[in-house]
Design a protein around this nucleic acid. Structure first.
Length: 426
RNA sequence: GGAGAGAUGCCGGAGUGGUCGAACGGGGCGGUCUCGAAAACCGUUGUGCCCUCACGGGCACCGGGGGUUCGAAUCCCUUUCUCUCCGCCA
């Protein structure tokens, strides 16, 4: 969430930003500012009363010690009135603070000035593209047919074991999956990211920290018996490593990469683009996360985009990078680039990565701070993350684009990971 | 699943009703000494909020929530988590 000082000092910027995001409650900002003034007044008064009580209590203690019981009891009587007043005051203050929190979590992050206005995908701005769109042979098939034909992916088996959206990979399909994971992790660690293998379930606190709770509760699988949530992305456990931590400026940036399965209920999205691997409930993803000094976060964002771009290029996939418009930007993001690859048989662009700078928005919730050497005051870090990369759609594009009448060609960079004799799936 | 123990500052660990934001030790930082370092010695070392231009000051926080009391790290209730032993198990 945004900090109160930021909202107060940049009221107009915030209002303008919310407009770009099509956020339809600008009055909220003034409500917050107003409530903060009220809250401060309450706190001043409360603190005064508390100070009075502390003083009197100390006095009573002294008096009892020196045996002046009578006097002590006199002072005691003085406290009752103050105590009552203090009680209501404290309640008011607590209520104001709770209310403030309710209001603050309703305010989305302010988009970066470069974010274009717009309502939907259609208004996203293409930054650049690369690769060439392959021309397929006669009778080319979409990946769900290819998966069946070459015994790589079995969707029906997933339905039997679990349900729709839980594909079973087998044989070369499973191996290709493993190859992609290893390849991505190696590329990421070569680029300076520390590899993390985190828990796949998180507690409520972590879910709240990265913003999945309470707003997107329905999107996560909830293990009610233990009150844990299956992670929808590695971002959740990895970013929460640094929750409630004060770093030295010298420790920044922190760069982590993690492979995890991701679990998403995708409630409400049935029937749309759900064929094959396009949208599933469980999928594998390699994520990159950076904790950055605020002065460098946008450099880091560009660096992450180039890194992901290299991955896509190395796999030989036609791609385009779009900057999300205000309306398409997530609640917590200040600037997001989406990567899409072209799946030739479906004639569709599939989103395979989303790279975002959250600035201090997540950090504020997570209490993730750093300190400049010699400074006493702490500052909020900036957080960024991106997929590098999400597997199913990459797999879909590879299968579809690389199909030939004789089989499916495995991208060269994966050959070392697939083992000899597996340059082609036949 | 059964039984027990515990949760205090960067770490270890004391503290069972009043000057405890917290002894003591370690670590960190600054200094003295030294050619330099080590050792030794001295000093310093939590977070957040609020008032103030500032100097400075106030308040809260000893896992979380609630209660008793003039006063709670300390007593009571409740909750979460951790550890140990037994059982089960990859």
């Amino acid at each position: 969430m945004l900090t109160i000082p930021f909202i107060k000092d940049h009221r107009d910027t915030v209002l303008k930003g919310l407009e770009v995001k099509n956020f339809k409650n600008p009055e909220l900002i003034d409500q917050i500012i107003e409530l903060d003034n009220k809250r401060r007044a309450l706190q001043v008064k409360t603190n005064e009363l508390q100070a009075q009580m502390n003083k009197l209590s100390k006095e009573i203690g002294q008096l009892f010690k020196s045996g002046e019981k009578e006097k002590a009891n006199q002072v005691k009587e003085q406290t009752t009135g103050i105590k009552q007043e203090l009680e209501t005051m404290e309640q008011d203050l607590q209520r104001a603070n709770e209310r403030m929190n309710e209001l603050l979590v309703q305010v989305p992050n302010v988009p970066h000035p470069s974010v274009p206005g717009g309502n939907s995908e259609a208004d996203n701005k293409e930054i650049r593209s690369g690769g060439s769109i392959p021309s397929l042979h006669e009778g080319a098939q979409p990946h769900w047919e290819l998966g069946k034909k070459y015994k790589l992916i079995d969707f029906d088996l997933g339905v039997k074991i679990t349900g729709g959206g839980f594909p079973v990979y087998r044989g070369k399909g499973a191996k290709l999956q493993r190859a992609l994971i290893a390849y991505f992790l190696d590329q990421n660690t070569d680029a300076g990211y520390e590899e993390i293998l985190p828990p796949l379930m998180v507690n409520e606190e972590s879910g709240f920290g990265t913003g999945q709770l309470p707003d997107k509760e329905g999107q996560m699988y909830h293990v009610t018996g233990d009150n844990l949530y299956l992670i929808p992305t590695a971002e959740v456990p990895v970013t929460n490593i640094y929750r409630d931590v004060i770093l030295d400026a010298g420790e920044l940036p922190i760069k982590n990469t993690a492979f995890t399965p991701c679990f998403r209920r995708e409630a409400g999205s049935y029937g749309k683009d759900v064929r094959g691997l396009n949208r599933v409930h469980q999928f594998d993803k390699v994520e990159i996360v950076q904790i950055q000094h605020p002065s460098n976060s946008y450099n880091a964002l560009e660096e992450m985009v180039s890194h992901v771009e290299q991955l896509v290029i190395s796999l030989g996939l036609p791609y385009r990078i779009v900057q999300l418009c205000g309306g398409d930007l997530s609640f917590t993001s200040a600037l997001t680039y989406d990567f899409e690859v072209y799946a030739a048989a479906q004639d569709k662009w599939l989103e395979v990565s989303s790279v975002s700078n959250f600035e201090a928005y997540q950090s504020n919730r997570l209490k993730m701070r750093f300190r400049e050497p010699g400074e006493k005051k702490t500052q909020l870090t900036h957080t960024l993350n991106g997929s590098a990369l999400a597997l199913p759609r990459i797999l879909a594009a590879i299968l579809e684009n690389n199909q030939t009448p004789d089989g499916i060609k495995i991208p060269e960079v994966l050959h070392p990971y697939m083992g000899a004799g597996n340059e082609m799936i036949t």
